[in-house]
């Protein structure tokens, strides 16, 4: 368990939804189909009211531009999970990258996200990459 797990109750309240989504999207049909693995995903997720990625393969769709929910992007490319970032309250955020245009976005993980896929993403910087972890560790040792 993490050090900060004790104060989990002081959780930041989520922003209320202010955007109306088109028919067939979340809010219209109540579910969406994953762009990566074609899983039919219900829009209601435990732990978050802003589900934007598939809980199985963590793939998202590039529909928002600057503001989450604005639906202003005309790219519509699949966004693959790029990395994980920790928040100070111990929650994980998922960084997505559009595989068509290279745009980035951040979203909180949901309660039913695939834990194995999340952990695989979290340990990826530390896995024995030829020029990643080993090079940084060598640099750290050289400075000591």
């Amino acid at each position: 368990m993490g050090r900060r797990n004790r104060d989990r109750r002081e959780r930041r309240p989520q922003r209320p939804k202010t955007v109306l989504h088109a028919h067939g999207e979340i809010g219209g049909a109540g579910s969406f189909r994953c762009a990566g693995c074609r899983l039919e995903v219900p829009a209601i997720a435990p732990g978050t009211s802003h589900r934007n990625h598939c809980p199985h393969c963590l793939t998202s769709l590039h529909v928002d531009r600057r503001i989450p929910g604005d639906r202003a992007a005309d790219c519509r490319g699949p966004m693959v999970a790029l990395s994980l970032a920790g928040r100070t309250d111990g929650e994980w955020r998922l960084v997505h990258r559009c595989s068509r245009c290279g745009g980035l976005s951040v979203n909180r993980i949901a309660g039913d996200d695939n834990a194995r896929a999340l952990v695989r993403l979290a340990v990826r910087p530390l896995a024995g990459a030829p020029s990643g972890f080993a090079a940084v560790a060598r640099g750290a040792l050289a400075r000591l």
Binding site: A85, G86, E91, W92, A122, V136, A140
Partner: peptide, 20 residues
């Protein structure tokens, strides 16, 4: 700075949302 880099890299694993 390798120490700052390493701190960012291990930050998700140091404070996981579920028991690892």
């Amino acid at each position: 700075n390798p120490l700052v880099l390493m701190r960012i890299a291990v930050r998700p694993l140091a404070d996981p949302p579920f028991p690892l």
